[in-house]
Nucleic acid binder design. Structure first.
Lengths: 136, 136
DNA sequence: ATACAAATTTGAAATCATTACAAAATTACA
DNA sequence: TGTAATTTTGTAATGATTTCAAATTTGTAT
């Protein structure tokens, strides 16, 4: 059980009620949620919460490197509080997003290729997941 | 100079005027264009062209594996007619997208990791490009 | 505590990429 | 040549995201 406020501060983010709720949500829901999912799930416990706050907050988290932003789903942006080395797989049949373990050695090899200052390295797969493959 | 009609047919796509124009545009403009850029550039020579046709066509090309769809820019989808192995780098300062050469050995290592049927493997970097780094 | 400035949150309205859809045009082929 | 299938088109709808200014909350000096 991590101290969310400290976690935010360690990334240079001043903790507010909303920011803590959003970060805590991301850390306890490794489901790559969209803004709307976060909003609907938090609303019951924070009735005045605004979607704009979620957009603002997630953008702040991204700038500060406290979360990862996933562009794998071209309908809507997804967010991931898990900063550990891993990739993502999108199943085009069922829409599910899977975490994919990447050996650190492979990841580092990939990360170091560009002759530019890299902030984020995203490895995205898409196709048909094993479950859907079994059905169809 | 490739025969565009044959190229489309080889992917199981029936060549029409519009489809050929769009594929020819993608192959001669390795600039990861958006739908709007393609539309505005083709409009003068095809005044009845519709944006919807471009959306339909690019989706068809994607299904048939004739192009790559880039989700690196979270504002809008970008398209790439270059199917060769390479990754992309988005500069968050100037917005430019660079092609990044990936050794085939590294790419294959990455591609084979997931325990699912992979159709597309996308490696996206973002950060500050060398040019922008020099300025600021 | 009090007051003031700075930071944060909020909600309504605007924007803009994408999709839905049905009519019109074109093409394939019997 | 006629008819069905395919493709294209334009308009309207959708839906995620952004803008923006007002309201609220927080930090800090007095």
């Amino acid at each position: 059980m991590v101290d969310i406020a400290l976690h935010l501060r360690s990334h240079g983010i001043r903790p507010s009620i909303q920011r803590m709720a959003i970060m805590e949500y991301l850390m306890s829901h490794p489901t790559h949620p969209t803004v709307d999912v976060i909003y609907c799930d938090l609303l019951p416990s924070m009735p005045t919460l605004s979607r704009t706050t979620i957009y603002n907050t997630l953008e702040l988290f991204r700038e500060k490197g406290a979360i990862r932003v996933l562009n794998i789903d071209n309908k809507t942006t997804r967010y991931d509080g898990d900063l550990s080395i891993h990739a993502h797989f999108l199943c085009r049949k069922c829409g599910k997003i899977y975490d994919i373990d990447i050996p650190e050695s492979v990841y580092m090899k990939v990360k170091l290729i560009p002759k530019h200052h890299v902030d984020q390295t995203e490895i995205n797969y898409s196709g048909t997941c094993s479950e859907c493959e079994a059905f169809f």
